[in-house]
Nucleic acid binder design. Structure first.
Length: 665
DNA sequence: TTTACCCTAAACAACC
DNA sequence: TGGTTGTTTAGGGTAA
């Protein structure tokens, strides 16, 4: 680390000798011990420590703001990708080139079987045209049908590559701007010094990062700068654009440089200021100061009210003069910035890896986008040898494809791993993997549009359907509707999967059939559900690893930042301390997994209204006759049922017609 | 190899 | 009578 041992004159702080490139590109992790040492080097009073504490809190806020900004960028990126995918919707013929799920062959075979069974012949609902029974018997063994892989896909890919690259490049650009913002902040504060002639952007050249040629850079630069002229002139919103102007292209005129425009970081409440800096850029805007806003001193942890700018300056000179405390605060701030830079660098690497990966893939037959969990489940399967470029799953529309954090590396989404989604047998339930609800929520559009089988067991899906319902109870038909509504995959082969649904409902103790005024409805006994497959997760490292990796796969892109922070083991502000909802949820999910069923059951139980007594409210007609465990004798803890059922199935009904129609296809 | 879990298929009965 | 719902059995695959 770059701790400056001696503290003497103001200049010693102002010209903190940290080569920016070094501080930027090779930031070092500051351990809490080191941090303590730093602080102990100073003779600080408890009050000063208190101030430091407050300052750290403020810095945490800053980090959160940074996160939000980061998230926003990632969401934008995702949106862009989505738009590109929709723009490049593949024609229908393309569907034929993808694999046909095994169950569809099963469907075909069952049809042939039905010819031998008059009782089944009555059911004709979904059966389509004539099917060659011979093929029907042979193809399923292979598990695949191969079709001609035309060049249409390649053309489509080529059309998509450019905007995709552009999107990533813009993402990269923004990240760099973010990075530069912190550097400039440091420069403004005098914490970093640069040789006089050096441009304010001692960063890695963009071309090195992105692999863009200068012409592309210039074009990008034009686009970016022309796209946000208002922001640039007003300096009102994100400073990133200004930063771009100031730093991204060193040859650009510096007139719009952020350095000359302190407005660009008017929220400078988190900046560290040293007295020397007062006379610097603020002369153009005499009453504007990064440490002064809304009549309040923005020095971290200060917030002293200053009626006017002169009084603020007076306050600044008196309260925040160069002393041990201010120096220590600067040090803390610098460490924080370094951490942020480290984090940013990591994410930049990820982005670069993503770009590199996509660029490489663009020359190969492009596979349909897949939700991460599918990919992960595929990697667990052994069906890779069956993979072929022709066996992609159906993607009638181009659904949302959540992106993977680049830490997973380009090997996560590969042309081979993406071909075997359909026929895989292995599923994972939310018992020891990512919660199904979050997965479905994250990949909702994908599942709705792509005919890929959700990587969850029927039991998990049924449970999810029931738990999603307002009353935590569904009729069989409503469960059917949920399946067809949520998953394109279940809009086919209705007989097969419906039979499976019924089979699961009857077979598993966790599904309890109760009868209310409306008729029979199905509810979930969480205790029983969690009892299934009581594997010792806590004692099986490989399982834990698998679980964690599955979480990582399923983590949406906008959690990449948090993930990277966790990976980076940022010591000063851990992700947990930042109260990040994503990681918090992940942590709680893992806790839930590790703690087993009871906690989950209790939580589910709490979902039901306290006043309700489900068992009393409904009339169980049938409880599966299996030997009761002692705990079962006490009754299901979470039999979430209610009697006052309200008809809320308009939505289902709306879809029903559509689903039926599709089933008739 | 065993075991548990999962999926698919199918028979069958009861009900609407 | 035909469709739906629910139960049960069978067989095969997968992974621990």
């Amino acid at each position: 680390m770059c701790a400056c041992g001696s503290l003497a004159p103001a200049h010693a702080v102002l010209t903190f000798q940290v080569p920016v490139s070094v501080a930027m590109m090779t930031p070092q992790v500051i351990t809490p011990q080191q941090m303590q040492q730093i602080l102990q080097q100073q003779v600080l009073s408890p009050q000063q420590l208190q101030v430091l504490l407050q300052q750290q809190q403020a810095l945490m806020l800053q980090q959160q703001q940074l996160q939000e900004f980061y998230k926003k960028q990632q969401e934008q990126l995702q949106l862009q990708l989505l738009q590109q995918q929709h723009a490049g919707k593949q024609p229908k013929e393309v569907r034929a080139r993808f694999s046909i799920p095994q169950s569809q062959f099963n469907f075909s075979c069952s049809q042939s079987y039905s010819r031998r069974h008059p009782a089944q012949q009555r059911k004709g609902g979904y059966e389509g045209g004539a099917i060659d029974q011979q093929n029907c018997r042979e193809e399923p063994k292979k598990g695949k049908q191969t079709f001609d892989c035309s060049s249409r896909e390649g053309i489509r890919n080529q059309q998509q590559v450019a905007p995709q690259q552009l999107a990533f490049q813009q993402q990269l650009l923004q990240m760099q701007q973010l990075q530069q913002q912190h550097l400039l902040s440091l420069q403004r504060q005098g914490l970093l010094s640069l040789p006089p002639g050096q441009p304010a952007l001692p960063l890695q050249p963009l071309s090195q990062v992105s692999g863009m040629i200068p012409a592309e850079l210039q074009q990008l630069w034009k686009e970016v700068t022309s796209a946000h002229p208002a922001e640039e002139t007003t300096g009102s919103s994100h400073s990133s654009v200004d930063l771009t102007t100031a730093t991204c292209v060193s040859s650009a005129p510096a007139k719009t440089s952020l350095i000359m425009n302190p407005h660009a970081s008017t929220n400078g409440q988190l900046s560290v200021h040293t007295p020397k800096r007062e006379s610097l850029p603020h002369e153009e805007h005499p009453h504007s100061h990064p440490l002064y806003g809304h009549g309040v001193c923005k020095w971290p942890g200060c917030e002293a009210v200053c009626e006017d700018f002169p009084s603020f300056l007076k306050h600044l000179n008196s309260e925040h003069a160069l002393d041990d405390r201010s120096t220590a605060q600067c040090r803390v701030q610098m460490q924080v910035v370094q951490q942020l830079e480290l984090q940013l660098a990591k994410d930049k690497e990820r982005l670069q890896a993503m770009m590199t990966h996509l660029h490489v893939k663009s020359t190969e037959p492009k596979a349909a986008p897949q939700p991460l969990n599918l990919v992960s489940s595929v990697t667990l399967s052994k069906s890779a040898p069956e993979a072929s470029p022709q066996s992609l799953p159906h993607t009638p529309t181009t659904p949302t494809a959540p992106l993977t954090p680049a830490t997973q590396g380009p090997s996560v989404i590969t042309t081979t791993s993406m071909h075997t989604v359909g026929p895989i047998r292995r599923r994972y339930s939310d018992k020891y993997n990512v919660p199904i609800s979050s997965d479905i929520a994250q990949n909702q559009e994908f599942y709705k549009n792509a005919e890929v089988r959700p990587p969850f067991t029927y039991a998990s899906l049924i449970r999810q359907a029931i738990l999603e319902s307002p009353e935590k109870q569904l009729t069989l038909n409503e469960i059917y509707n949920w399946f067809t509504r949520m998953f394109a995959y279940f809009r086919r082969n209705a007989a097969t999967w419906k039979n499976a649904v019924r089979h699961n409902l009857s077979l598993h103790k966790c599904f309890v059939r109760v009868e209310n005024v409306k008729g029979a409805v199905w509810t979930v006994d969480e205790v029983e559900f969690q009892k299934r497959r009581p594997q010792k997760i806590s004692g099986n490292p490989s399982l834990i690893k698998n679980m964690q990796s599955s979480h990582a796969y399923c983590t949406p892109l906008n959690a990449a930042l948090q993930a990277s922070m966790a990976e980076n083991s940022i010591p000063l502000y851990t992700t947990a301390s930042m109260g990040n909802p994503t990681l918090g949820g992940l942590a709680s999910a893992m806790r839930e997994e590790l703690n087993g069923a009871v906690e989950h059951a209790n939580s589910t139980e709490s979902d039901s209204s306290p006043g309700r007594s489900p068992v009393q409210a409904v009339h169980p007609v049938h409880v599966k006759e299996e030997p009761l465990d002692p705990e079962e004798a006490e009754g299901p803890l979470s039999l979430v049922t209610t009697a006052n059922h309200s008809p809320d199935f308009d939505q289902d009904r709306d879809y029903e017609d559509e689903a039926v129609n599709e089933d008739m296809e």
